Simulated scan of single mutants.
Amino acid sequence: MQARALSIWSNDTFLYARIYGKGRPLLLLHGNGETHQILDAQIRYFSSFRQVIAMDTRGHGKTGAGSGTLTFHRIANDIIRLLDYLNIESIQIIGFSDGGNLALYTAKHYPYRVNEMVIVGANFSPDGMLPKVLKETVWEYRMQRVMGTLIPAIRKKAAVTNLMLDELALRREDLPTIQQPVLVVAGSQDMILESHTHELAKLLPNGRANIVPGASHFLMMENPEEFNRLASDFLN
């Protein structure tokens, strides 16, 4: 796949993204602690007939964290900065896990810049995670906070983990204001509670849930052909 790499200044750090293909633009957003590379199967598929924009979000991959607290608000501002740089007025989004949460946040605060969305394994509240997963995430964050007092790299990691906890800036009352069509996808074996996925879709005025039988949180990577067809049908 041929790609054009971008590194642009966004407020207080450099933002890294790769552009693939030509056609109607589609933004891909990875999950917490990952990079755009985890969405390689989606990049390959959609770039054959779309312009795909795959970014490393703030604090991830080749994008710096900048100064101050890492928040969804700052990352959403980075997305708008990237769209402005590329002269894209509005865009469709596929967001995985925390990337799905970020897609919803961006649609809420910049409604005219976001069109249809497919969000996978997303949650609007930390308690949308399975209790065991939430407990492990909280424990991991606490350990990172302690070790981060001595090791800067772990301190940065703690800031990323906290995006799933204290910095998950979605409120239940925000969701009914998001008017864009949203396909809310999750696996039947997801780390997100199935009841939470259905509640999320129900709270969105134009939301629709699709639970993939037997699939885990990483259904996009486990069965990319099925997911890509599902997402393509919805977005087109």
Rank of each mutant, 00 (worst) to 15 (best):
S7A: 15
D98L: 11
A186D: 03
T177V: 11
T13D: 06
L204H: 13
N77G: 07
I75T: 11
S97V: 14
L26P: 02
M147Y: 15
R58E: 05
P205A: 06
P25K: 00
E199H: 06
M220H: 05
I80W: 04
V133H: 01
G148F: 03
A103V: 14
N101V: 11
M117W: 06
A65V: 02
Q179D: 03
D166R: 15
L183A: 02
E116G: 03
P181K: 12
N101Q: 14
Q144T: 04
M191D: 02
A122S: 12
Q92H: 08
T137A: 04
F49D: 14
A103F: 08
R155C: 13
L230G: 05
T106V: 12
N223Q: 06
R113D: 15
L28D: 04
I80Y: 05
V212G: 05
H30A: 05
G31A: 07
E136K: 09
N87A: 07
G148T: 07
K135E: 15
Q2I: 09
T63W: 07
G33L: 11
G23Q: 10
G128L: 04
E225T: 13
N101T: 14
G128I: 00
M143E: 15
K132M: 10
N101H: 11
L165G: 02
Y110T: 13
P176A: 10
R4W: 10
L134K: 05
A122T: 10
T177W: 06
F14M: 10
R142L: 13
N223F: 02
G68N: 12
H109Q: 07
